[in-house]
Design a protein around this nucleic acid. Structure first.
Lengths: 106, 106
DNA sequence: AATTTGCGAAACCGAAAAGTTGCGCATATA
DNA sequence: TATATGCGCAACTTTTCGGTTTCGCAAATT
């Protein structure tokens, strides 16, 4: 099983789950209620997210609350980092370009 | 075909291709030389990246140069935005917490 | 004690993905 | 003009994925 974070966020349902539990921990049933799918399907997604260490779980009686591990999301941000440099550079170039036009007009 | 950007970057080979052509445009053969796979496989990945509008192509004789469309990568950054708020908030809380400890010590 | 509820795990299924092979076309090169 | 090269496309195969169904277990509820 490959199971990395990029594969985890590839599925739209999983992204929705991530967004859902970002603010507060939720049980599988509560999560499933937000989607047009069964609890078992959600459970499977939660398992994948767990394997990627994107979520935490906390048992409370027979209920299990799942919660986002926000730090893990940072890994995507880190992957993005070098690319961000690229588009910031391009923005600066545009900036300079515009400044130049400004200077030379009239 | 689902074909969104998140699915596009889910594959490790495609992420490698993206990183490879970020700085300079490359032909399929040149790209394939960097991996342990055939040109056709790379071609397929390029096709997917094209469908997601993650890359550009420019024909030069019988060679086709593929190049990253850096702007599209921003979409991931945008998705990340609300989560970034979360971990920045947490950082600020930690900051306040530490400041508090500092204040109350001795 | 019997029943309901919340859950994970396993078995199964159809659809999609990733890679290979073979082809044809266009552009170079001999 | 004949041959080699760079490429995309289509057919095919194997693997993976997302979902459903079924099951068993533990914790609540009656």
């Amino acid at each position: 099983m490959r199971r990395d974070i990029f594969q985890a966020i590839a599925d739209p349902t999983r992204r929705a789950i991530i967004a859902l539990i970002a603010m507060q921990a939720m049980t599988p049933n509560a999560i499933a209620a937000h989607f047009d799918t069964t609890r078992q399907a959600v459970s499977k997604h939660l398992r994948i997210l767990s394997e990627c260490e994107l979520i935490d779980q906390q048992q409370n009686g027979r209920e299990i609350y799942y919660q986002l591990k926000i730090d893990k999301i940072k890994e995507i941000d880190q992957w993005l980092e070098p690319f961000r440099k690229l588009w910031e550079d391009r923005f600066e170039n545009l900036d300079r370009y515009l400044a130049n036009i400004q200077k030379n007009k009239n």
